[in-house]
Design a protein around this nucleic acid. Sequence first.
DNA 1: CCCGGCTCATGCGCTTTGGGTATGATCACG
DNA 2: CGTGATCATACCCAAAGCGCATGAGCCGGG
Lengths: 295, 295
Amino acid sequence: MELRRLTYFLAVADELHFGRAASRLGIAQPPLSRQIAALEADIGAQLFDRSRSQIRLTQAGEVLEGHARQLVDRLDAAYKETRLVGAGGAGRLRVAFVGSASHGVLPSLIKSYRSHYPKVELALSAMNNAALHSALVQREIDIAVARPELKDEELRRVPLERERLILAVPDNSDLATRETIRFAELGDQAFVLYPRRPRPSYADFVLDLCRQADFEPATLELAQDYQTAIALVSVGVGISVVPESVSRTTRPGVFFRSYEGPNPGTGLTIHARRDNQSRQVLQFLDVAQRFVRSR
Amino acid sequence: MELRRLTYFLAVADELHFGRAASRLGIAQPPLSRQIAALEADIGAQLFDRSRSQIRLTQAGEVLEGHARQLVDRLDAAYKETRLVGAGGAGRLRVAFVGSASHGVLPSLIKSYRSHYPKVELALSAMNNAALHSALVQREIDIAVARPELKDEELRRVPLERERLILAVPDNSDLATRETIRFAELGDQAFVLYPRRPRPSYADFVLDLCRQADFEPATLELAQDYQTAIALVSVGVGISVVPESVSRTTRPGVFFRSYEGPNPGTGLTIHARRDNQSRQVLQFLDVAQRFVRSR
DNA sequence: CCCGGCTCATGCGCTTTGGGTATGATCACG
DNA sequence: CGTGATCATACCCAAAGCGCATGAGCCGGG
């Protein structure tokens, strides 16, 4: 069951002449004769009819020839495809991101990667920070785009985007039309924050801001994720503090307003397992770094 | 591009453990590690992620695994099929015969061979003796069933059937109802003989009989083959001298009558090239010999 | 009818490749 | 921080493959 013999066999089947086949293979004629003889012994049947000066394939030889050509071609294709996947030129990359990232630069980054590696299938999904971390550790995803960055020494990080915070307010709130908004004046507002779990979360980060401005929100609603929170804002449940980039997408019922007061901003960070050395991941991080530098 | 490495790779992919894979393959672990390393070097990509205690396939490894399984299976199937064809258990056998043979024992012989080797595809065709000889020499057929036997030392022969000659007469001829027919009395008859080419042929053999009986046919019509000749008899063109076995098939317009007089008989003989040692041919001849002996 | 050339098979020595044993390096786990 | 497990490396030996020389069978020409 050795492949070299099949390629030798095919050369002889092509040339119908041991000497020419041997020189085509770059070997001498005697070893070729021996290899063919060994193949015939292995199969237990003559593959060539050598009774005449011009040799010819037997029926068994013809059958084997068809299969052998297919096999050699398929093996070659398999090697090529494996090489391509190994080099990161094809395959699959599972990228997950926090919901609020879909309004910022992430889509542009994704587009850039796709243009560089069009044959890599991208599996995109949205989840909150905790789910991102868990999915990375469980190897359910290769890349996590989190906000804020995940604290885990086993992960490598690439900062993607840093942005200011703004307010998302319902369109029927007086905040929607007020000239300027000072953060310290929001003590009587209902706050919609996210995510609910796990604590401490981005919600706690915002609550810290409130404490810095010497108030506690009058009402506090904790949503599972950004998408739910902004939906609650749009129906008038309360206001939320969100990254500036989400204001690029207009949304019925929601006004985005900047404010005066504490604004440490928020950062979007790309994460991958350090031990995931797959070319797809390395190349994605590379594209991301160049993408960030070019801005 | 060596196949052993693929089977080794598959063993490791199955076990995800070099030690177990090695013992399953019946080799020690170090050479297995080396072969996998060589395969990875050949492909230029990691196939296994060895960073953890439990190794796992990389994307490239998964791609190769799928292809490798198919390849190994197909190669195995190819060897099996080639073996079967080489042993004569499958494949193709091209058998040609003279038209007058299709009424005798040949169909039974064919049936017997089919029952012994049902997977061998039989390509049957009818042609006259000259065409049979030419087709055998040109290797267009493997077996020729000729009448009389072909004179060629390069052919091996198996006598199949020996039979008497009888007359085929039109049903409106007075010969059809006559009590007994003496061959010598046929001088005033129109003879339909075959084949037309090449001379000397079966027709000349019959004409020799006439000369032995001291007459020349009043009229002589030469047909291309037996089928044409019997058709001419059926429409009243004349009488013909045919092997007895054709009378087993009744034919509208034709009466078969035995006669008194010279009757050297005629023989059906199976031929194959001596240098055609294919199992299909040898086995057919073997079946034929046993078939003849059993009668 | 024999001889020479062509073609595939065989004998023999050498190189390459593959496998075995011993051991090292790394990592998880107690 | 040691211990066992696991894969990689070092080294040696056996088997397989290759090249060269040569034999055997066949065909065509003198």
